[in-house]
């Protein structure tokens, strides 16, 4: 096995295999899948979800869960665009700063409720999910905003290439996504704070006895997800060129499923960024493929559900069990 693959966990390897198989299948079944235009489209579209996934992974590793982040991103979109229009437009720096700040604050609300009132994270975030969404719909009356600052609705193309089937482009959200993934990876793997998050998710009592500040860790985890959600929200506005209050409603479950598929453990202490990215890639590629094959979008939900069931039952533990069993049988055969 090549060196680089050996440091990759079993779940990630398994996901890579499945993704390769699906890509091969789609390349043979359609002539549109394996084109630069389609692949870049897929990447541009998935950038927002990948930023969400990075943030959510942090919360899952810390032993929590959050389902309010997607509607929180909608709240951020609405507030940021309103503020920007009030101050006369602003620019990218102000926009990103505002989005990150408001997103962080919304995440901090979750952290405060969960830590200081010792409430269960799923219950708290179901409540804030409804609270954020209810407030948003109440104040906007469900009305979308189409008047955006010019810089925000102007598409920024980082790379383009003309192909037979049209222009293939990579846009700004992809760069922002790469930066957010790198920052998340750096925090989780290279900073002491990330290791403390892992420790808290793995054994909260052990972490407390070592003197890890559990309160600060809650603010870090949920705040980081809020920050990611805010920035992802802004990127989604840039991509869609409009603010629709319920545009992101429902994304939370799609992203959560993908991250869990990538090996993050509900309950904390385990999860890798590579896994989360691969989990999301698998879901997005499947969706894209079904779309190209002309399958109904309802079938997509069903198939995502199936993939998750299969993936979870083939989790690394099961795989290890299988290989152990095979090894034992071989020893027995060798001895008889």
């Amino acid at each position: 096995m090549p060196e680089i693959l050996r440091s990759v966990g079993a779940t990630e390897r398994w996901l890579m295999v499945v993704i390769v198989v699906i890509c091969l299948g789609l390349s043979l079944a359609t002539d549109t899948f394996l084109t630069l235009v389609n692949l870049f489209d897929l990447l541009n579209y998935s950038a927002v979800n990948l930023i969400f996934a990075a943030g959510l992974l942090v919360v899952l590793i810390a032993g929590g869960i959050d389902i309010s982040f997607a509607v929180a991103a909608s709240v951020v979109q609405y507030l940021v665009v309103t503020i920007l229009m009030q101050i006369g437009g602003g620019n990218w720096a102000i926009g990103l700063l505002l989005a990150g700040l408001i997103g962080f604050s919304l995440g901090a609300i979750n952290a405060a409720l969960i830590y200081h009132f010792r409430l269960v994270s799923i219950v708290v975030t179901i409540a804030t999910f409804n609270l954020f969404f209810g407030l948003l719909m109440f104040f906007t009356g469900g009305v979308s905003i189409y008047a955006l600052p010019g810089w925000l609705s102007r598409r920024i193309i980082l790379f383009e290439h003309e192909t037979a089937s049209g222009w293939a482009e990579i846009t700004l959200p992809v760069l922002v996504m790469v930066v957010m993934l790198a920052a998340t990876w750096f925090m989780l793997r290279r900073l002491n704070l990330g290791r403390q998050l892992f420790a808290m998710g793995d054994n909260p009592e052990g972490a407390r006895r070592l003197g890890i500040n559990l309160g600060a860790m809650h603010y870090l985890a949920y705040g980081w997800l809020g920050l990611c959600a805010g920035i992802a929200g802004l990127m989604q506005v840039h991509y869609a060129r409009e603010v629709v209050p319920n545009a992101l409603y429902g994304r939370e479950l799609e992203v959560l499923a993908a991250v869990v598929l990538g090996g993050a453990r509900l309950g904390g202490g385990r999860g890798t960024l590579l896994g989360a990215v691969l989990g999301l890639a698998l879901v997005s590629i499947t969706q894209n493929g079904l779309n190209l094959l002309g399958v109904s979008p309802f079938a997509f939900r069903m198939i995502v559900g199936l993939i998750i069931l299969i993936a979870i039952s083939m989790s690394s533990e099961t795989l290890r069990g299988l290989t152990e069993g095979l090894r034992r049988r071989r020893i027995r055969e060798a001895q008889s």
């Binding site: 290279r190 900073l191 290791r195 420790a199 972490a207 600060a216």
Partner: peptide, 23 residues
């Protein structure tokens, strides 16, 4: 911490503290 390696469990002390630091 059952998910962490033996080395990291033993030397976790180095990861403590509120100030961000490289591992």
């Amino acid at each position: 911490f059952p998910e962490m390696s033996v080395a990291e469990n033993i030397a976790f002390e180095r990861n403590l503290g509120a100030r961000p630091r490289l591992v």
